[in-house]
Amino acid sequence: MTVTTPSAGAADHWADELWAAVAAGSESAARAVAFGALNAGVSPESVLLDVIAEVQARVGHAWAANRMTVAQEHAATAVNDRVVTALAHHPAVLDATPRDSRGRVTVSCVDGEWHAFPARLLAQVLSLHGWEVDHLGAQVPTPHLIGRLHRSAPVALALSASLAPRLPAAHTAITAAQAAGVPVLAGGAAFGPDGCYARLLGADGWAGHARGAAEWLADGPPAPVRHQPLDDLPHLADQEYTLVSRSAPRLVGAVMSGLAERVPAVRGYAEVQLQRTAEDIAHIVDFLAAALYTDDRDLFGRFLTWTAGVLTVRAVPAASLLPALDVLRHELRDLPRSVTILDHGRTVVDVLTDPPNVLHQHQHHGNPA
């Protein structure tokens, strides 16, 4: 099957139109734009990837830049998701979908991963390329996923994860699927720049976008590599990841107590501020655990850089992260890899911020699910 791609200008035009509709929360207007693009001769794949996916990326950037609330971001994502569903029944899409199946592919999010839209797009694109797609959606527990693979016997599993704390669950799913004889193609932001963590965790392939996934499948998935998780990550033998991940609730409580002692402003926080502060600290602990799992301090540094940017556009100084990092370092002072990662994180934040090192009295930001 040959799929044509319109000029960048044409895709940009339709993306701008769809953005206006999605930002307004109008499903009918968004559907009309997508149908209009198809009727104008834009290929179904391009509507999905050059228009809808582009707009979804803008939604994420708008939330991070504080131009969308969490509710607006969720509403926009829901509109885009329903447009993808509507497109599946459009005559242009039905005509472009091969009638003879090339085989079955399972598309699933990692256990704990709620960001299902990238997998949703991938499932639709693979259908356009002639694959029979078993799309399982968000947050699929690994035992249920493996049971499904045994029953459906796909030629490959496309595994999606957006957040780095999902990497341990992804690793479990990868090794279990390969043990069941199913090769795994990893995709999503969780797998790091250029898919570096996909390779680290032993995935059979990685694709940075849906077109790359279709190309990987078209070339013929390789026989799955069978391996043991500890063989992939020998540094896990020091148990630091296990200690930090299992003690996460205690660590969050200890950091909250430490902040109250070090920063008087925290003692005056309202209940909602305390709750959101605890949520922020929980994210820090989660990403520290992910950095321990991968033995990559840069994973933690990238998370703090992103978090500092989100805080800054909300008028919260990046320096507000420093006391929490200091207290967490004190709590984990006997764990050398944790200390190294936290010291690196503090250096990253120091570069991004201008002293003083004080926790700014503020209403903490929300974090979209």
Rank of each mutant, 00 (worst) to 15 (best):
G195E: 11
S43H: 08
A11E: 15
A218C: 00
R346F: 04
A78V: 02
P168S: 10
L167K: 09
A138V: 14
E73M: 11
D280E: 11
L185T: 06
A23T: 13
V84P: 08
A177E: 02
W63S: 01
V42G: 04
L274H: 07
A290R: 06
W306E: 11
W216S: 02
G9E: 15
V310R: 14
H13L: 12
G202I: 01
P165R: 09
S152W: 02
D134V: 07
R346Q: 14
H235R: 10
T294L: 02
V348N: 03
S108M: 11
H171R: 13
A218W: 01
A369E: 14
P221N: 04
L200V: 08
D296W: 01
A24S: 15
A177H: 09
R148T: 13
G268Q: 10
Q72Y: 06
H362G: 13
A88N: 15
R31I: 00
P143R: 12
Q239V: 03
D95L: 14
R337T: 12
D354T: 15
T106L: 07
V105G: 00
P317V: 06
D298S: 15
A20P: 03
D12M: 05
A324G: 15
R58H: 04
D280R: 12
D296Q: 08
A32T: 02
F300R: 00
A37H: 04
E331V: 09
W14P: 00
T277D: 07
V51F: 00
R102N: 07
L243R: 08
Q239K: 14
A116P: 01
P224K: 04
G41P: 11
P229R: 04
N66C: 10
G309Y: 01
R104M: 09
A169N: 14
A65V: 04
A289T: 05
P336L: 01
W216Q: 05
I281A: 00
S28L: 00
A291D: 07
P143I: 12
P323Y: 03
A169V: 00
D295K: 01
F191W: 10
T294C: 10
P264D: 09
G195A: 11
L18E: 00
A282S: 12
Q363Y: 13
R104P: 00
Q228A: 14
A213E: 06
G345V: 03
H365F: 12
T69C: 01
S46T: 11
Q273T: 08
P118T: 02
H365S: 13
P193H: 14
V313W: 09
V133L: 02
S247K: 13
I281V: 13
H344R: 13
L163E: 06
T353E: 10
A10P: 08
V47L: 12
R267T: 02
L49S: 14
V84S: 13
V51G: 05
G220A: 02
H89W: 11
A8Q: 14
W14V: 05
H360R: 12
H129R: 10
Y241F: 13
Q228E: 15
V107C: 05
G309N: 08
V266M: 09
V107N: 01
V263D: 12
T307W: 15
G253R: 02
R329Y: 04
L159H: 03
A176P: 05
V285L: 06
W14A: 07
V107L: 03
A21E: 04
M1N: 14
A57G: 15
H129V: 08
P168T: 07
T242C: 05
L236I: 03
V252Q: 10
D298A: 15
R120I: 07
R302Y: 01
H360E: 13
A57Y: 11
G258L: 06
R58M: 04
T69P: 04
Y197K: 11
